[in-house]
Design a protein around this nucleic acid. Structure first.
Length: 293
DNA sequence: CCGCGGGCCTGAGAGC
DNA sequence: TGCTCTCAGGCCCGCG
């Protein structure tokens, strides 16, 4: 599920439910997600006040009053949902005081006001850990992460720095979290189509600026930021099961121009091509061979 | 340095 | 209805 827009949507949904409250209790319904939980995982969370929630690449970072941070990665199928204390927000629904547990609810955070924040993850490719907040930049999981594409907005000079001399394909280069952080398979396919660039082009071969401004680093940089902003505005993409922490699904999947649209007509104005699917470094690439050069 | 394949998991959907 | 097969939004490792 989650690429940058879905993680950002999750962050925004969690903010009002969590910030300023204290973690009263943490329940672990199993001993591991992708990795075993740290031995002191619960102890370092319980009775801490939540100061804020940040995002770095596809990681959520929950800042705690102790100076520690809870770091969570949603993997392929992870999601958070918020269940407010019955009665607090829905006095007509007091009968819902018995918390419902769904399959794959692996971690439950109970907050000081009774709110429950639940992490669900069928495939368990996600993981979470507690680390010293000050040391996060040096944490092995975080230290190699590349540029945030939105803050500040990705620019052609950054792309030049990241891609010059690289013989990797554009598709693979954009998926590489060490270069640009947060793009995944969907948004790479979408950005390349918007930019009119072939996923097979060598990353180092993109011109700084074309005469007409097309198929250049400048065009690619703005295509990437535009698709991410559009997706965040739509609340992310809900393919199978993704929904924001508020329970609402995202709508960006209705705006896909190529992803999962094999055989469909290309939506670019004036283009008579159709969307193809090929496998590139083990992942599906969707593109229009006619207008992506 | 690079691409590729496999592995980690479960569930949905297609095809028979 | 039910089986088997393929594929899925991420990421890491080892191979050639």
């Amino acid at each position: 599920m989650p690429e940058l827009p879905e993680v950002e949507t999750t962050r925004r949904g969690l903010l009002p439910a969590m910030v300023g409250k204290t973690i009263a209790a943490v329940a672990l319904n199993r001993s591991n997600l992708r990795f075993p939980f740290q031995r002191d995982f619960r102890a370092r969370l319980e009775s801490q006040r939540i100061e804020g929630i940040d995002r770095r690449a596809k990681y959520l970072i929950v800042r705690l009053s102790s100076g520690d941070a809870l770091v969570a990665h949603l993997g392929m199928s992870g999601s958070f949902r918020v269940e407010s204390a019955a009665g607090a927000l829905a006095p007509d629904r007091l009968y819902r005081t018995i918390p419902r547990t769904a399959a794959h609810d692996h971690v439950v955070f109970r907050l000081s006001d009774g709110t429950r924040v639940i992490y669900n993850d069928p495939r368990r490719f996600g993981f979470m850990f507690v680390a010293e907040g000050d040391a996060l930049d040096r944490h092995p999981r975080m230290c190699g992460i590349g540029l945030e594409p939105l803050d500040p907005p990705l620019d052609p000079e950054s792309l030049a720095f990241l891609f010059d001399g690289t013989s990797t394909s554009l598709k693979t280069a954009l998926l590489d979290q060490k270069r640009i952080a947060g793009l995944g398979n969907i948004y790479v396919c979408e950005a390349l189509h918007r930019a009119g660039l072939s996923p097979f082009r060598t990353a180092g071969s993109i011109a700084t600026k074309d005469r007409d401004g097309k198929r250049s680093r400048a065009h690619l940089a703005s295509a990437i930021t535009a698709v991410l902003v559009d997706a965040i505005d739509a609340g992310g993409s809900s393919l199978r099961d993704f929904s924001g922490a508020d329970g609402r699904p995202g709508y960006f999947q209705h705006s896909f121009r190529v992803y999962d649209r094999e055989g469909a007509a290309c939506s670019r104005r004036g283009c008579t091509g159709s969307i193809e699917r090929v496998v590139q470094s083990g992942r599906s690439t969707f593109f229009c061979a006619r207008c992506q050069k």
